[in-house]
């Protein structure tokens, strides 16, 4: 049985005086124990809202969540606030994008780490402090005893993110959701944090949902990748298949727009034209059609269905043919 099963998750925002906005539109995926699953897409595609919906952190007023999120057989969406609170931090952990603003500026790091331990593992303060020292050690923070007495503004960006990872993993959750955990960090620190996450996931057997817009992160970390566009999954494949043979034009475009060291001199990047603002509703068309190089008439008149193509899920009327991508394939094999 899958650890987490998301079925037909739909999140829409209802604000007075504004049209209903559907941020996530029938997303389904599964996470097996210990597996690392990527949710990829550009800003506004619904990645973060999906993660907040799984964690039950969306505002009660204004956000309507439907579908089903089962964690180890328990339907999370129907849990009471109290029960969901007990699970957050214990069974499901989350790491956010901006490590500075995600830490409470007026409380020492030590108190913030021990707060979780006291809350979920009922540890007395002293024991929790010892455990917190261990945790900081484990996430690679040097001199943890001193760091525990310091405040967030005294830590470097990388160390803050390490501290947040320590807090999220303090109660050994079986699922960790990392929402763009490296976006606010330097490139070198990014690599360190990714290596740390990889190591922790391997050592503790924690399943990881990696939310990112950075395909480089996905390439290094994820077993399976879901590409989101306009609140729906447009392509799902194992990492290797996705990178070698992107079938959805959007995935293809994302990969083509990555700068590469081995590209010929003077060769231009190929961006995806337009922006998320050009989306059309999924109702009677493909939301990506206005930006798609492969768009046919049918793309503007009929919603593409999710279909399985050779072990991958695809939502496209006119996918990129594998052969057309032979050159890219060669590149990746090197």
């Amino acid at each position: 049985m899958a650890l987490l099963e998301v079925r037909d998750l739909t999140v829409s925002f209802h604000r007075r005086g504004e049209p209903v906005f559907t941020a996530v539109d029938g997303v389904s995926f599964e996470v097996e124990p210990g597996q690392t699953v990527g949710l990829v897409g550009e800003s506004g595609c619904g990645k973060s809202v999906t993660s907040l919906a799984i964690m039950g952190l969306l505002p009660k007023r204004g956000a309507k969540v439907s579908g089903s999120v089962t964690f180890e057989g328990t339907e999370l969406l129907r849990l009471s606030d109290r029960d969901m609170r007990d699970r957050r931090g214990r069974d499901l952990g989350m790491v956010f994008q901006d490590p500075l603003s995600s830490l409470n500026p007026v409380i020492s790091i030590g108190l913030q780490v021990t707060e979780v331990l006291e809350r979920h593992r009922g540890m007395p303060r002293k024991q929790a402090m010892a455990e917190a020292t261990d945790l900081l050690n484990k996430v690679g923070i040097p001199d943890p005893t001193r760091r525990l007495s310091e405040y967030p503004h005294q830590l470097s960006g990388g160390m803050r993110q390490r501290a947040l990872i320590a807090m999220a993993l303090a109660c050994r959750p079986r699922l960790l959701i990392a929402d763009e955990p490296t976006t606010a960090l330097d490139v070198t620190i990014q690599a360190q944090i990714l290596a740390l996450l990889k190591e922790l996931v391997r050592d503790t057997g924690t399943a990881l949902i990696m939310i990112t817009h950075d395909l480089g992160v996905v390439a290094g970390l994820c077993d399976q990748v879901n590409v989101l566009y306009g609140g729906r999954i447009v392509e799902r494949a194992q990492r290797h298949e996705l990178f070698v043979e992107p079938r959805h034009p959007y995935t293809h475009g994302l990969l083509a727009s990555i700068p590469r060291l081995d590209a010929a001199r003077g060769q231009k990047l190929v961006p995806i034209p337009g922006s998320v603002a050009d989306n059309i509703p999924w109702d009677h068309a493909c939301a990506f059609a206005p930006r798609c190089a492969n768009a046919l008439d049918v793309c503007r008149g009929q919603t593409p269905a999710e279909e399985w193509h050779e072990g991958r899920l695809l939502r496209c009327h006119n996918p990129v043919e594998p052969a057309a991508d032979a050159a890219a394939k060669e590149d990746l094999r090197v």
Binding site: M94, L103, E115, V116
Partner: peptide, 19 residues
């Protein structure tokens, strides 16, 4: 963000408000 982060750790509402 830090209140959202605290909520993601299951911190109780009372502690969220007062701490």
């Amino acid at each position: 963000d830090h209140v959202l982060a605290a909520r993601s750790l299951g911190v109780r509402p009372g502690a969220i408000v007062f701490r």
